[in-house]
Simulated assay, not measured.
Amino acid sequence: MAVVDATGSRQQAQRVRWWRELSWRYLIAVAAILYAIFPIVFVLSASLSSRGTLSGTSGLFTSVTTVQYDALFDTLFWTWMANSLIIGGVSSVGTVLMASAAAYAFSRFRFRGRRGTLTFLLLLQMFPQLLAFVAILLLLLALGHAVPLLGLNSKAALIAVYFGGALGANTFLMYGFFNSVPRELDEAARIDGASHSRIYFTIILRLVAPVLAVVALLAFVGSFSDFIIARVVLTQQDQLTVAVGLYQFVSGQFDARWGIFAAGAVIASIPIVVLFQFLQRYIVGGLVAGAVKG
């Protein structure tokens, strides 16, 4: 009986300890999940509604229809979607190549101005992009006269702007990760006769794959969902990105089409979700290692 009483008392103490130390964490996690998932459910419900508006909605999924999705085929939505995928894909790949090359140079080479340049990149991240809009507009206006491909209303010009905006932060992020790769690998490869380019492409890039995936994801999401810079640079309807194009559905004061906007937003979120799931195993390792090592 004494053993049974001791076991019961121990289990009771464990339950009390769980409620006192751990239960509040689960409650906060459930509240955070509900807070995050409600907008997604609401947008999905609006995209499946036949009303085409958010006013007068009495409940979620009161009517389920694909009329809003069918209406997208009568617009330039799929052209905007293709533009966003092209811009996001090229910006992502280019940012990874440029930032990784710069981070490799800062990590492995010693040259005059190295530390000052790293400090400048760090300070550059503290200024908001809003300060650069006027400069970007004037620069593209001037470039358009000399090189029309890099002028206003050009996807190439927008991609170039994204390259410049993402280079500083991503270089600094990769720099910490590159420092975690042992230099002995470089020395062993040089003894075997490998050049810096071969070491970079065949050894280093394979070892830093997690941070490459993180930078690629951040660059793609940033350029795919960007609105303000794309709104300034692109003007023609067939050149717009999906974020700017969808805004036109709800920009009117009396003719806002929230249903088709919600349907387009749901479809536009699919590439980001797929890319995140594909790179998920690299993301945590890439962010944590780059933050604590170097």
Rank of each mutant, 00 (worst) to 15 (best):
V41E: 04
W18M: 05
S180I: 00
G113P: 14
A71E: 13
A209T: 04
Q248C: 00
V215I: 15
G176N: 11
F220W: 12
V274Y: 09
R281M: 01
F201K: 04
R20G: 06
S251R: 14
I260H: 04
G165W: 04
L123I: 15
D186A: 07
G294C: 10
R110Y: 05
S63I: 02
S269A: 15
I270V: 15
L158R: 09
G294E: 10
Q12F: 00
A268R: 06
D74L: 05
V221E: 12
L121E: 07
V161E: 04
L279G: 08
A216G: 15
F120P: 00
L54E: 04
I199W: 11
A256T: 05
Y162N: 13
G88F: 10
F120S: 12
H145L: 13
I28E: 03
A2C: 00
F254L: 13
L139M: 10
G245L: 07
V250N: 02
A291H: 09
A2L: 14
G290F: 08
S49K: 03
V67C: 10
I283D: 04
A263S: 11
Q129K: 11
Q280N: 12
A160E: 01
F77C: 09
V288P: 00
G116M: 13
V215F: 02
V274M: 08
A194P: 07
V244D: 08
A160T: 14
F77G: 06
I159E: 05
F111E: 07
A160N: 05
P128Y: 10
D5W: 03
R231N: 14
A29P: 00
R51M: 11
N153K: 08
L246S: 06
A103K: 04
T241G: 14
W19T: 05
V93H: 01
V134H: 00
T53S: 15
L152H: 09
Q239F: 03
R190S: 11
V292N: 05
S63R: 02
Y282H: 15
T117F: 15
A6W: 03
F227T: 12
F276K: 02
G56F: 13
S195M: 07
T202G: 05
P148K: 13
F254E: 11
L143C: 12
V250M: 07
V43Q: 04
V41R: 05
I33N: 04
R198E: 10
L34W: 05
G252C: 07
A160V: 15
S154K: 08
L34R: 00
T53N: 12
F61K: 00
R231L: 14
S47P: 02
L122C: 06
R15P: 12
F278L: 12
L22Q: 14
Q14T: 10
V288C: 03
A2F: 07
G294D: 10
L121T: 08
A71L: 11
I267W: 08
S197F: 14
G286Y: 03
S47L: 02
F177M: 02
G285N: 02
G88A: 12
S154Y: 09
I87A: 02
A146H: 13
S55W: 14
V284C: 01
H196E: 11
Q125F: 05
G56L: 12
W24S: 14
S107F: 03
A291Q: 12
F201D: 04
Y162D: 11
G94E: 08
A230H: 07
S100E: 06
Y162S: 12
R190F: 13
